[in-house]
Design a protein around this nucleic acid. Sequence first.
DNA 1: TTGTAGGCGTTATCAG
DNA 2: CTGATAACGCCTACAA
Lengths: 348, 348
Amino acid sequence: MTIATVARRAQVSRQTVSNVLNSPHVVREETRRRVREAIDALGYRASQAARQMRTGRSRLIAVRIEPTRDGINGSVLDRFLHGLTETADAAGYRAMLYTAADATAEIATFDDLLSAYDLDGFVLTGTDHGDPRTAWLAERGVPFVTFGRPWDDPDAHPWVDVDGAAGTAQATRHLLAVGHRRIGFIGWPAGSGVGDDRRAGWREALRAAGVDPTGLDRETVDGIAEGERLAVDLLTAASPPTALVCASDSLALGALQAARAATPSIGTAAPAAAPSAGTAAPAAAPAVPVIGFDDTPVAAAVGLTSVSQPLGDAAARCVDLLTAVLDGPPRTPAPVLLQPSLVLRHTA
Amino acid sequence: MTIATVARRAQVSRQTVSNVLNSPHVVREETRRRVREAIDALGYRASQAARQMRTGRSRLIAVRIEPTRDGINGSVLDRFLHGLTETADAAGYRAMLYTAADATAEIATFDDLLSAYDLDGFVLTGTDHGDPRTAWLAERGVPFVTFGRPWDDPDAHPWVDVDGAAGTAQATRHLLAVGHRRIGFIGWPAGSGVGDDRRAGWREALRAAGVDPTGLDRETVDGIAEGERLAVDLLTAASPPTALVCASDSLALGALQAARAATPSIGTAAPAAAPSAGTAAPAAAPAVPVIGFDDTPVAAAVGLTSVSQPLGDAAARCVDLLTAVLDGPPRTPAPVLLQPSLVLRHTA
DNA sequence: TTGTAGGCGTTATCAG
DNA sequence: CTGATAACGCCTACAA
């Protein structure tokens, strides 16, 4: 069934059907209705391939599905993907998946996707300083949005992000509010945008409360074992922290073990944790409160208090920004910074 | 750049270039090489849209991304998707995502995807008795594979699945081997294919060991709280089980809490759990050993012994089967039943 | 407002 | 083995 089938049925020319589809306003009301009826009756859908051939647009957006990393932080991705697919759908776009082992491979894939499939745009996740992927895309004028700020230049391209600093600051203030002063931070090595951002939130919140953060933080690559090691290190120091904020749930999980092992005597002011009404939590509050980041399923399962990112929203805004570039005037839409929220459970 | 650009550069006709691409064997060796060189030099890629228009094939396969359910079992999906994308890629296909609230909506989406985007095939996950989706697709001769058996008729269509019964049987045998006899099972309500399968594995393993499974199992909808409730129910019964096998990690997590609360005196023969060398586990072995199913990140994090499904393999085999249908002769490829493995951690 | 004439890049058919 | 020609379904002019 083609546009001609519909035209015959509605007693109009093919052109009129095309107009009803693409520029409804130029067709007389009554004719438009008749054509619409024919379309519905026939169950006609325009062929993307033919349309794409003519217009050069595929109505396809690409998003990378990364190899799951440690299995804990990896599981945030499917929430994002679901939101993305749903919103894209509503905007008349479809999401296409691709994988890539590294940035170089990813750029090669861009090229392939662009030249073979005529992709309309890309959604990139996890950007970093001097990301070669964004440079490549920008250079060629390919529309894209990143979930994650361009750390070098906030105006480089459209982006959506979650305010990580606000998240760790909120976590820190929560601990301050219940009486803690010496609050430690376990994060990633300096130099990564997200990592530095999350550390900054903690540091500033502490400073604002008149606490000197010096010596209260440690850094490591992500992982449960690493988190535990650093927490032990921190808790056995000269004047140890009485509570811990972590840059990820993995680190927090490790820290939690160290915290549970720590004797309550360490804390100077360790108030009782609020009994949460959430899902069942396997264990009691640790001697040293711990807060994680990402609100992964694991956090929910073990009762870990964690900073939660609005992933569905983030995905939706990514699509909004991308379609604004694709369908709207050629100006860069304003970036979106979303606020995370603290999900209180048993560990803080 | 089109096929004509390549033809000019290689000093051949457009048709010859097309032949090199689609039927290399009909082109003389030397010519083929010259064309290949031109293609590489120019960085030429055939336009999918044009090819699709001509052939009616899109080289696109669709897969649904479901709204994450309880956040625990949901996180298996991204591993599957990653494997799928990677294997599809290697076979020259790309994966497209779609969502649907229910089976009816999903069928409507099939229709849309098929008529507008000319999708080549579908990968369906989580089939059940009398699935309307498979019926719809089969009726129209649309190629598809399911990850999950067609419980009504094993020959209905190509499928890939993991042998759930073998998984629970293995878990049960593991517990039997370390001395347990009365091993309980917490599963889903009878009637679901997967649920019944997993229960059957436990039941048969017990019977094979000469233990009567009567009264040792309970059923409920999935969830942590539900798992805990049923475990308590089971453990406070007249002659309680000394170990528990669960149909999911969610149920197992709940059961684990009940098991930790249970006094060791309940067990008749509770041997010490093997200290696992895996990732750090937050707590000691419970009085009553518990084994989960799916090996989710949560299981790894809390040290829960669990039955692991080879998701990457499963995804790869799904693509294999689908491409066999798409590219090969029109006969239904044999189904694939993969074996799960037991990942030993601290809880059993 | 409607109809007619191209052409997007590819592959299939059919002569040479 | 190579070269010409038509057609896939749609959209964008342009003319009526």
